[in-house]
Structure formats: structure tokens, C-alpha cells
Nucleic acid binder design. Structure first.
Length: 258
DNA sequence: CTACGGATGCCCT
DNA sequence: GGGCATCCGTAGA
């Protein structure tokens, strides 16, 4: 773990110039819009192991997608698009495959989704394994937390600036945390991931040899949708990956009891 | 390790 | 006005 972290931190300077960024992108081409044009569940699983890339000015951020949830649309009581509901907010769920859907929840956190078939279904990104841009991500996360401490007491300020080092595992292990780390807000909403300049998905060529073991389990934070839909195994994550937001040991066992 | 309450503002009925 | 596809700090086992 530490080894890869060091390597990745070291990689940062390689991407300083635009030419090198383009060169890298041509080696790992972005996923085109046809890639996203598949059933929600299939898309949610196939996105695991893919590289999510964010370009912010000269800053390049990368993370491997390690946890997703799918929201099926019309029939899914936990989905914003349940019963075919169309509102100003959930409009991107009905747009072209690969369209981003960013919304605010609990008044202060963003969640990031990708539409699948344009029928109201979408995939929520729940956790990323940071690959490039640790320092930037850490800064974003710490700044957000600092704002929570309203007190302007000198001792408090010193205290909060001092403990300015989150574990890499804590940077993107949650749907809102990854949005903070990757600077995702409303300005990223309704974008086509096959064309958007500052955000896209890539294949991970370094991992082609490994077959991923995928855990399927119930989604998180949707109990109010009722037991039937809350219990359906529509959350997916890479087994054994330490950057997942929350393990489900019961369903991990089922992987091997087949 | 789990449990719980507060933060905080938009969305939808 | 009620309810969040969440996170964080604190308390207790």
C-alpha cells in the first residue's frame, strides 16, 4: 500500500505539461459513449476497476472506481426517478448514456451519478481508490472540514491546521467524500462523460490480467424506501479492496459459498 | 468496533 | 413542512 502510494505521488510531476497529459490519455483512451449504453446493473459492475479522471486546470486527479450502486429508475422505490418521475433535478437520469447527474443531499454534500440508458436509471459512485493527486484531495477534504468548526479561536485554528493529514483510505471512501476530493459540484452536472473536457473514465490497462471479485449487497442509506427495495443487492464493490466505504461481511461470505 | 445526534439547504408534496 | 442515495465528533462497549 505504502509502496503504491509513493509511486503515485512520484508520478504527479510527470503530468505537468499538457503534452504529457494528452500522451497519457491516448495510452489509456477514455471510455466512449457506447460503453455506457448498457443496463444499469451491468454498467455498475463494469465500472469497477475503471479509472475516474478529473482535470482541474493543471491539476490531474485519478482514482480507481472500487464501489458503485445502481438505481434502476421507474420500478425502483429508492430511485429519484421512481414511478417515472421527472423533475428539474433528476433530468440527467433520462439523458444520453454517460451523462453525469450531480445533486445536493443533506444540504451540504454532493453525490455523483452516471446515467445508463436514458430511461431514468443511473449508477452512483460510492468510493474511489486514490491514484494521483493525494495532496490536492487531502487539501480539499481538510478545507471542507475546517469550515465546520465555526469558532475563530486562535487555538482552535492552530489545532485544525495542524492535523492536516488524512489517511489515503479516508479521502474518497464515500459518495460525498469523493466529490469533495475531486472538486465535483453542480458545475459538473448534465455533462457527457464521452466529451467533457475536465472529467472522464478510462480503462486500467495495468489491471487487465486480474479478474475482479465483485461483492453484491444491499445499498446504503435508503431504508425509507421500504424493505423490499432496500434489501436488493444493488451495491457492488471490489472484494478485498481497502478503499471501499463499508464492507458487508455477510454478503462477502456468499461469494465463496457458491 | 457500533450508535447516535447535529449540521444545513434544496427538493418535492 | 418533511425528508433526505452523508459525514463527523463523541460516547460507550
Amino acid at each position: 500500500m505504502n509502496k503504491t502510494e509513493e509511486n503515485n505521488r512520484g508520478d504527479l510531476h510527470l503530468f505537468d505539461s499538457q503534452k504529457q497529459i494528452d500522451l497519457f490519455s491516448s495510452v489509456h483512451p477514455r471510455l466512449n459513449h457506447l460503453y455506457f449504453d448498457k443496463a444499469c446493473e451491468e454498467l455498475a459492475k463494469s465500472l469497477l476497476g475503471k479509472i475516474f479522471v478529473r482535470k482541474l486546470g493543471r491539476e490531474i486527479l485519478k482514482g480507481k472506481i472500487v464501489e458503485t450502486e445502481c438505481y434502476l429508475g421507474g420500478i425502483d422505490k429508492a430511485s429519484h426517478s421512481y414511478n417515472g418521475r421527472i423533475t428539474e433535478r433528476n433530468r440527467p437520469m433520462y439523458m444520453k448514456p454517460g451523462t453525469t447527474y450531480v445533486y445536493l443531499t443533506y444540504g451540504m454534500y454532493y453525490c455523483f451519478n452516471i446515467s445508463s440508458r436514458g430511461d431514468g436509471a443511473a449508477v452512483l459512485l460510492r468510493a474511489l481508490e486514490p491514484i494521483t493527486g493525494f495532496d490536492y484531495m487531502n487539501e480539499q477534504r481538510c478545507n471542507k472540514r475546517k469550515k465546520k468548526n465555526v469558532s475563530s479561536d486562535d487555538a482552535e485554528v492552530k489545532k485544525s491546521t495542524k492535523q492536516k493529514e488524512l489517511k489515503v483510505q479516508e479521502l474518497c471512501n464515500g459518495p460525498a467524500k469523493l466529490c469533495i476530493s475531486f472538486g465535483i459540484d453542480k458545475s459538473c452536472n448534465e455533462k457527457d462523460l464521452s466529451e467533457f473536457d475536465s472529467m472522464w473514465c478510462e480503462d486500467d490497462s495495468s489491471e487487465t490480467q486480474q479478474e475482479l471479485q465483485i461483492v453484491s449487497c444491499p445499498r446504503i442509506g435508503i431504508d425509507s424506501a421500504g424493505i423490499e427495495w432496500a434489501s436488493k443487492p444493488l451495491r457492488f464493490y471490489i472484494f478485498g479492496n481497502p478503499f471501499v466505504s463499508k464492507r458487508d461481511k455477510v454478503h462477502e461470505k456468499m461469494l465463496f459459498d457458491m
